[in-house]
Design a protein around this nucleic acid. Sequence first.
DNA 1: TGTACATCAGTGAACGCGCGTTCACTGATGTAC
DNA 2: TGTACATCAGTGAACGCGCGTTCACTGATGTAC
Lengths: 207, 207
Amino acid sequence: MATKNVRGIEPAVVEPVAGPRERYRAQVRAEVQELAWVQVTQTGASGLSLKAIAKQMGITAPALYRYFASRDELLTELILSVYRELAELVEAAAGARDADRDKLIATATALRDWALANPQRYLLIYGTPVPGYAAPPSATELAQRIFAPLLASFPGTPDQVLRQSLTFWTRLHGVISLEVAGHFRGMPFDPSELYADEVTSTVAGLP
Amino acid sequence: MATKNVRGIEPAVVEPVAGPRERYRAQVRAEVQELAWVQVTQTGASGLSLKAIAKQMGITAPALYRYFASRDELLTELILSVYRELAELVEAAAGARDADRDKLIATATALRDWALANPQRYLLIYGTPVPGYAAPPSATELAQRIFAPLLASFPGTPDQVLRQSLTFWTRLHGVISLEVAGHFRGMPFDPSELYADEVTSTVAGLP
DNA sequence: TGTACATCAGTGAACGCGCGTTCACTGATGTAC
DNA sequence: TGTACATCAGTGAACGCGCGTTCACTGATGTAC
């Protein structure tokens, strides 16, 4: 969609050709999604309510149907945006390093930091599945983009490498998900130390 | 509450002194909980509905208030019963073995088997927290009873032992929770192998 | 530049559904005399 | 053993709330001539 102008210079605004109506649409959509996030953060995915969002915007609920076909479509967009956000974050963390081990450590660190800063976002994609809601097919591709940076080129058959990466991932998730869900609360240790130990010892164990 | 009779023999029925009314109460309570489980299994914890349960029992909803003070109380009992069930299972698995390593492996195996057989039960206590619902204090004690069998008496300071046990736990949870939430679906590997490898390699790494 | 027209954001009423919970009540059932 | 009484499971109406979604509509706004 983004087009360059005649001299090949990227314009400052993202969608420069859009008329005022399209620009307005984009703004409203963004505002809806923002309020939706506040809701999901406070009440979980099942608490997402179009009527409540409309109320907060000082608008009637049917008006939202100009911007989203249904509640499920809005939820889907939220979920996909989480996948995208996390994929970019993880790719950036991995891309900034050369050595495989550094890459893995940087990625793991970025993952936890992000999860702690956005617990509900993390839980939205890795937590209890929303009953009756099926993620769109594109979510699977994005999930793989998140997983890919954990695939490092260590010696071994493709199967072994996959297994190592998977295990790295499940270990990170084990610590992060328990912490994010509050299961470490009141326990006599520092979760960030536990995580750091887990990351370094796992990376050190790789061939 | 359970009393022995004069000769010290455990009577067959659990609550022998209970009159017919109490017996009936217990039966109805059990039936309510059973139907509640079906609901939680199908729609998640937030889908638990007293009216729906009453309907299935061929009863009006207010009648349920003879047996449970509120929806939250019913949910609390469900959650506590999961903790209890899992604690007993884990204790039994650990108690049947002598050597520490065997104990850990048996416990880990029992944990995964149970989680796969009861995914919604597992997610009810280790998944995304139900927004607005606070677990009762006794849940914490029970959570520790589940964790305790993972504490083996390996050499090291109490801190090191705690750390090792925690890491064992987070690793098991990492694999189990991703599998139970369906994140391994369509991936080219066998989850049970992944889990078995993770268990044996972790136990082998202990001092 | 001014005006007529088409587009479309937003309204308000309504539908049908679900929920938890309260309350005064009926009527069956167990129990004490 | 028979009867009177107290207990208490379950009813039905109601309250107030929330939800997603549809529909015919109004009226502002951008656009084409």
